[in-house]
Design a protein around this nucleic acid. Structure first.
Length: 226
DNA sequence: AAGAACTTCAACCGCTGGCAA
DNA sequence: ATTGCCAGCGGTTGAAGTTCT
């Protein structure tokens, strides 16, 4: 299958839209509708690709878009829907009139996810990502000390929690725990191999190695998506 | 006051599914 | 059944703004 040429190769403009461009797009759509997005910029006289026009219209210029902060009610709806649907932003947006999928996605990533993390204690997170039952003996994790990241977050692990972590959770789960609760940069979050091969800062590396070395579980990794 | 670090969010990229030929 | 086009989607990026040191 042949992919359509991208905007750059066709010498079209990229980046932020100017007020003039917005005006041209709005006027054109008000007069003729959007019809075929690919053909639109040519007819409207815009040096943009159709995709860029569609995005600008659907995420910003559409007259039915509700702008401004999300209300508490909207926030609750997003929380509930995200629990039920996951990252299906368009499905969530369909239930929130006037809000776009992009806006909801951004709101989730910058506000709600953070809020959710603050409300989740480390021990709760351990249980969430772990398999098996806790054991009571101390292990390497505790011997290493964990005054760094955990105490900075005012969330201390008990000896039981450390032991439990070390002995019972899979490599994948350990990694997910690092990502979710020790706030690693998001660019590390989706690619385990990147994490292993990239030069990462000392503190991240310390915790990552610690988790990888400590009490590897023989049990299969959890399916974290469920 | 100034530079660093962090946050926000508009816009982009690349993939996917639907549909017509 | 296959191919090619298109719109839509979710993940990611980076500029601009804000806060911190």
């Amino acid at each position: 299958m042949v992919r359509a040429p991208c905007c750059e190769k066709m010498g079209l403009k990229k980046g932020s839209w100017t007020a003039e461009e917005d005006q041209i797009l709005v006027s054109y759509i008000q007069l003729y509708g959007h019809g075929n997005w690919r053909a639109l910029p040519k007819h409207a006289g815009l040096q943009r690709c159709g995709k860029s026009c569609r995005l600008r219209w659907t995420n910003y210029l559409r007259p039915d878009i509700k702008r401004g902060n999300f209300s508490k009610e909207e926030e609750d709806v997003i929380m509930k829907l995200h629990r039920a649907l996951g990252n299906r932003w368009s499905a969530i947006a369909a239930r929130l009139p006037g809000r776009t999928d992009n806006e909801i996605k951004n709101f989730w990533n910058s506000h709600l996810q953070k809020k959710l993390k603050q409300n989740t204690t480390i021990p709760a997170a351990i249980k969430q990502y772990s398999v098996g039952t806790p054991c009571t003996q101390n292990t390497d994790i505790q011997n290493y000390g964990y005054g760094g990241i955990f105490s900075e977050q005012s969330q201390k692990l008990s000896a039981t929690d450390c032991s439990f972590l070390s002995r019972n959770i899979s490599a994948t789960s350990k990694y997910q725990l690092l990502v979710d609760h020790l706030q690693l940069p998001s660019r590390f979050s989706s690619d385990h191999s990147t994490m292993e091969s990239t030069k990462i800062n000392d503190e991240m590396g310390f915790w990552y190695n610690l988790f990888m070395e400590a009490g590897e579980s023989s049990q299969p990794p959890l399916n974290l998506g469920e």
